Simulated scan of single mutants.
Amino acid sequence: MIRCNSELIDPIEPRLFDVDWSRANGYIHQSGMGRGGAHILKFSGHYVVLRFFLRGGIMRKVNRDRYLRLGEKRSRSFREYELLRWMNSQGLRVPRPIAAMTAPTGFFYRAAIILECIPQARTLADILKEGPLPNGMWSDIGKTIRDMHELRVFHADLNCRNVLIDDADRVWLIDFDKSHRRKRGRWMMQNIERLRRSLLKERGMAAEFWMDDRDWSQLVTTYQASHDGRIDVSAKQA
């Protein structure tokens, strides 16, 4: 089953979910990103991202891409598709979803999603290996995350490779697999801490990494000062 959004490409070509077909027709622009599950395609004058839902960790060795069928609305691809559509309607800088697919295989299903490709954007991790961020950019990142949290969106993997900055110095958030809306709670600061750990990990592996305590403090200060004040980190997690 395929769910489509005609805002960017109309009509969408369902066979774009078939990598062999896309490659044979010259639509593949770049392949093998992020554990091999993502491809950049150029179709109908637009660059889009085709991402397959793949398992990680030990489970990946025995089951690479199948998930238990619990109804189409609960599939990984359809849930991310609907969440992205809603976040776009709220003005958040996240990719526009173009199409989502589920393919049943007995009691299981495989899934994929096609998203708008953010033009001229790079990951926060890659940018920090080359030099410091422009003035105010750490604050912009903090505000962007707070805008997401104000809408009660939990990002399941908020790390420095899922924060993008484009050539106009705009901050984008990507990869909302397993993300969802929930009540306010400690998870909000846990999201922030997850981002911090990923930055420290990248810094530990890089010859140069342009981030220090003042940069992080700027992000957190702006995050906590935005909108309705500081987060109550003692609130009960939903």
Results as ranks from 00 to 15, higher is better:
G37R: 00
G37V: 08
A38P: 08
A38V: 00
I40A: 12
K42I: 06
K42H: 12
F43S: 10
Y47F: 15
Y47E: 15
V48L: 14
V49S: 07
L50W: 15
F53M: 12
L54C: 04
R55P: 10
R55I: 06
G56V: 07
G56A: 11
M59N: 12
R60M: 14
V62Y: 14
V62W: 13
N63Y: 03
N63D: 14
N63C: 15
R64C: 08
R66F: 08
R66K: 04
Y67P: 13
L68K: 12
L70A: 03
G71F: 02
E72Q: 13
R74D: 06
S75D: 03
S75F: 09
F78C: 05
R79V: 08
R79F: 04
E80K: 08
E80W: 05
E82T: 09
L84A: 07
L84R: 15
W86V: 01
M87L: 11
N88W: 07
L92C: 15
R93T: 02
R93H: 14
V94N: 01
R96T: 09
A100L: 04
T102R: 05
T102P: 01
T105H: 14
Y109Q: 13
R110N: 12
A111Y: 05
E116I: 01
C117D: 05
Q120L: 14
A121S: 12
T123N: 08
I127T: 03
G131E: 03
P132M: 03
L133R: 10
L133I: 02
P134N: 11
G136R: 01
G136H: 07
M137E: 05
S139G: 06
S139W: 02
D140K: 13
D140G: 08
I141D: 08
K143N: 05
K143P: 00
M148P: 01
H149I: 11
